[in-house]
Design a protein around this nucleic acid. Structure first.
Length: 494
RNA sequence: GGCGGCAUGGCCAAGUGGUAAGGCAGAGGACUGCAAAUCCUUUAUCCCCGGUUCGAAUCCGGGUGCCGCCUCCA
């Protein structure tokens, strides 16, 4: 039996108990990308949030149908294609490839369906035809408009009143300012498909109505997307689908908050302040991005600044450190014996480890509070590290730390954090941070070799000199009983 | 102008009725040849003013500030 959960519904502006259309099943549709450029870290937040959400639902034994579309027919694509002299649909195809590269690098699972507008023309035309026949839409000079006044509930999602909207555009053939295009008559230089209303292409909003109908059905359990899509996009989808199908379109509207710059502005292409995912990933491991997104609630605005990723990486390093400490512990005594031998800290880590899963479920079942779940995770990590400070922990701590290791594994499965081996993680950190700072691996190794010799000679002056030199390169040297290791400093000193 | 949201310690951020999780940064201590990592200690009357309540960061009213949407946008 799938576990019940609660989720905020934009439609009601409250957190509601989730009730599925079909027992045990969640049909979720998320608005994907208009593919005419690389994705930026703002887009990636939505992708990561919904990826983690779907992973979690599956972990909790829901049968999930996850659909995320591509808009590959669109004004902006056409404009870009004309600029570079390519076919628009082909250009979109290229960026779909880049998209897959980027989200793959972010560790996202593929949705069950990734429909494209260019492959859904029939479904779109069928729905438009339906709307025309039922009087919800009208054709004018080869363009089909949706008549907003034909749908009395228009505005129920966004709270907008049609009369109050700004309406700057005066378009010939359009009866009311709020009406929007379902089908656009062909213009020179644009891709077009034949239709009962003449050659043309779909308007923006209709695609999601048609694609979700095709891949999930008339009523979606959950429809997701960025908060900026509430109006007009999602409002228009409701109007189209409910008018065409006569059924409630979406039971739960789930909107993620937007990235904001530390200046307060949102990150957006039109503002020219975007950071591409591929650039961020060239400098930081994917999981540091995931952690950055998941450390705050998905509906909150999330500030982006130069410290965001270094800080997330420092946090992540802490988690990996804790797991390494736990993994290093051995022993096979009964838990009670270990606790009586090692004391309170052993008891604490055992209890926190055992209780972690239900605490995490509690947080995630309550409007997917990944931030709270991560708080619990860090508490557990600290308890592990505290125990690790005990002299006997390495030899005997294994049994009491076993639940913590299981907890870390469940975090990897549901949130996609700590999903790598520590060795791979450290290697990725070194590679990316060195590259970002323009320091070569060989140079570091050479200095380290020199310093090892100095230390062997007990030439502490020389050893410190080299340490300082490395320090200036943001390389931190760690001396251990079994030799020296090094790592890249994660956060620059303030 | 209309609609919606947010305001918690130096910074980020959970928490929606019973006296404030977590992270980053800072300070002190343990540890270390020196460091790093780690651990311990340490910093909040939760924007302001009223109200409801035995009790509010948490509910209600008013105010101030910030943000998003109303044109493409995750």
């Amino acid at each position: 039996m799938p576990a019940p959960f609660r989720i905020y519904n934009t439609l009601s502006r409250t957190i509601e108990d989730f009730a599925p259309v079909k027992d045990g099943h969640v049909g979720i549709y998320v608005c994907g990308m208009t593919v005419y450029d690389h994705i930026h870290v703002g887009h990636a937040r939505a992708m990561v949030v919904f990826d983690a959400f779907v992973r979690y639902l599956r972990h909790r034994e829901w049968d999930v149908t996850f659909v995320r579309n591509f808009t590959d027919v669109d004004d902006k694509i056409i404009k870009r294609a004309n600029e570079v002299g390519k076919d628009p649909v082909a250009l979109a195809g290229e960026f779909i490839g880049h998209f897959h590269d980027d989200v793959g690098a972010l560790g996202l699972a593929n949705p069950d369906h990734e429909p494209k507008v260019s492959e859904t023309i029939d479904g779109i035309q069928a729905m438009i035809g339906n709307l025309v026949n039922s009087g919800h839409a009208y054709e004018q000079d080869g363009t089909v408009w949706y008549s907003v006044e034909s749908f009395p509930e228009y505005g129920k999602l966004s709270g907008q009143k049609v009369e109050e909207l700004r309406s700057p555009d005066e378009v010939p053939g359009k009866r009311a300012p709020a009406d929007f295009a379902l089908w656009k008559a062909v213009k020179p230089g644009e891709p077009a498909w034949d239709s009962p209303w003449g050659p043309g292409r779909p308007g923006w909003h209709i695609e999601c109505s048609a694609m979700s109908l095709g891949d999930i059905g008339e009523t979606l359990d959950i429809h997701g997307g960025g908060l900026d899509l509430v109006f007009p996009h999602h409002e228009n989808e409701i109007a189209q689908s409910e008018a065409a199908n006569g059924k409630k379109y979406v039971n739960y509207w789930m909107h993620n908050g937007l990235l904001t710059m530390t200046s307060g502005q949102k990150m957006g292409k039109s503002l020219g302040n975007v950071i591409n995912v591929r650039d961020a990933l060239s400098q930081f491991p994917a999981e540091s991005l995931r952690l950055y997104y998941l450390q705050s609630h998905y509906r909150s605005p999330l500030p982006w600044g130069p410290e965001a990723l270094p800080e997330a990486l420092a946090m992540l390093g802490r988690l990996y450190e804790a797991r390494e400490n736990a993994e290093a512990m051995g022993g096979s005594e009964p838990v009670e014996q270990v606790i009586s031998g090692l004391g309170e800290d052993a008891k604490k880590v055992f209890e926190l480890g055992q209780g972690f899963t239900s605490r995490m479920y509690g947080a995630l079942d309550s409007d997917f509070s990944t931030a709270q779940a991560l708080g619990y995770l860090f508490e557990l990590a600290r308890a592990v590290n505290r125990l690790a400070n005990h002299k006997k922990a390495k030899k005997r701590g294994g049994p009491v730390v076993a639940p913590a290791l299981a907890a870390f594994a469940s975090v990897a499965e549901t949130l996609g954090l700590m999903a790598m081996s520590s060795a791979d993680f450290m290697a990725e950190v070194k590679e990316k941070r060195l590259a970002a700072m323009g320091v070569s691996h060989d140079a570091v190794e050479q200095l380290l070799t020199d310093r090892r010799q100095a230390r062997a000679d007990k030439d502490w002056g020389r050893a410190d000199e080299i340490r300082n030199q490395l320090d200036e390169m943001n390389i931190v040297v760690m001396d251990r009983a079994d030799g020296s290791d090094w790592k890249v400093r994660l956060v620059a000193a303030n």
